[in-house]
Write a protein that binds this DNA or RNA. Structure first.
Lengths: 247, 247
DNA sequence: TGCAAAATTAATGTCAGACATTTAAAGTTT
DNA sequence: AAACTTTAAATGTCTGACATTAATTTTGCA
């Protein structure tokens, strides 16, 4: 397995890596208490400050949690899907914004992944998922909605679609892809016309979900992807011709 | 956006969250230097030790890097796909092992995602990808190979398939799904017969990739998924009947 | 003058020890 | 027995010092 082979010269990294490996290999199990900071500093022969820096690193990855008080200490954390998702979203968002990933590439990835859910979602969707999609649709249809609000409802719609697959692993993996697209989508100014087009596709997809028509869900997603790509190209092309509007 | 709404009572968490938000919102840009630890401790009115714990948290998420020496300091890091992948793999692996996700659920997610790549991979694959797949196949065909080795080659095969899609975002998102399955796969003891079956499916997929037959790639993956699920069910059923062998 | 060696400096990395705060458990009193 | 108090053990924070690193400046000599 890949056990972070980075040669970290500073002690706190080494200690963090050491404990991390113990957790990954199962030497330390969930909810087990680590030795106290004083004991760890004795074991590793470093100061308490150094141990603490190592523990903070692990806490940042949700690998441990700490508790104060008499029976407190550092405990191996059971990573929850929620915590993992939150981390993944942060990382994915920054990854896209910092590596000038093209809108095209990100969009393609997102819809490809979402189509992967279509068969499962169509088969397993509950009424709650249909309702969530309908609510998002209603929000998106409001004429006075801001662009940011429109995008947020868009995310809600697609997350409902993904969650309908009833597979938490799938939901987790896709959270990053769907949410990380939001800042890129926010760069687009949606005209009333383009909003109508998107909402129309969403409506088709929602209908297909209701009738459990997997192929139609996938087809709707493909159509939506094409229109989104076209829209983005148009917006970016116009912006290039006429570089900056008023600041 | 979701900006880690956790009410962290300790100062180092608050400071870390503060700086993290500044990076996410673009107040601090890539390669920009943060104030020195002494300056930060003055700004936030805390000791240097506390600031350092905050910085270590950010470093653990690859948000910053630090450099020693006269012109050193903490710099906003450009998160690389590599670093993000490594983190995602660690998180995904622990997530699966700690939440007793069933083999079935994980397997379903993995193949669903992989099928999402099939059309793109078939269309864009280069000779290098075919070669990587072929190499993995050759490795898997060796009769004296250990189970762990067989699984490692399996991962290599599927990663080549994913990378062939030529979409770095897709590769990043799927890295977690593919790699995190490995420990679960390692729980299975592959008989010679089941290995042959898997290799045969892989061969079909490789052939379909060569001829750029997207539908055949997807079909091959579906077949492989079904066989893997059946195999796992068999193995686990036998293990339940006859709980522990020699330790 | 030009260049190499040495000193300077500014930053992070580490240490030691102290005190503050939190929390559970043990002890005490009514 | 219940409520209160004390104790102890742990993390959280602060202070000040020294070690180490690496860029920059100064010095010294050919």
């Amino acid at each position: 397995m890949n056990t972070t082979p980075q040669t970290a010269s500073d002690l706190s990294s080494q200690i963090a890596a050491n404990i991390r490996d113990a957790i990954i290999k199962g030497v330390l199990i969930v909810d087990e208490r680590l030795p106290s900071e004083a004991e760890l500093s004795a074991q590793f022969n470093v100061s308490r400050a150094t141990v603490r820096e190592a523990l903070k690193r692990l806490a940042a990855q949700s690998l441990i949690r700490t508790q104060r008080g008499a029976t407190g200490g550092a405990f191996v954390n059971r990573i929850s899907f929620e915590a993992a998702q939150a981390q993944q979203i942060t990382t994915s968002t920054l990854l896209l914004s910092m590596n000038d990933v093209s809108f095209e590439t990100a969009c393609e990835a997102r819809f490809a992944l979402e189509r992967a859910c279509a068969p499962l979602s169509a088969a397993r969707r509950q009424d709650s998922h249909l309702k969530a999609m309908q609510d998002a649709l209603d929000t998106q249809s409001a004429p006075a909605l801001s662009d940011a609000g429109f995008c947020a409802a868009d995310v809600a719609f697609h997350r409902a679609l993904v969650d309908a697959a009833g597979n938490p692993v799938l939901s987790y993996q896709l959270a990053g892809a769907v949410e990380a697209m939001q800042p890129l989508m926010n760069m687009i100014t949606f005209t009333a016309w383009s909003r109508d087009a998107i909402v129309a596709r969403h409506r088709e997809i929602a209908t297909a979900m209701t009738t459990r028509n997997a192929a139609a869900v996938a087809a709707g997603l493909t159509l939506l992807e094409q229109e989104t790509q076209t829209l983005a190209r148009t917006v970016f092309a116009r912006r290039t011709k006429q570089p900056n509007a008023a600041p």
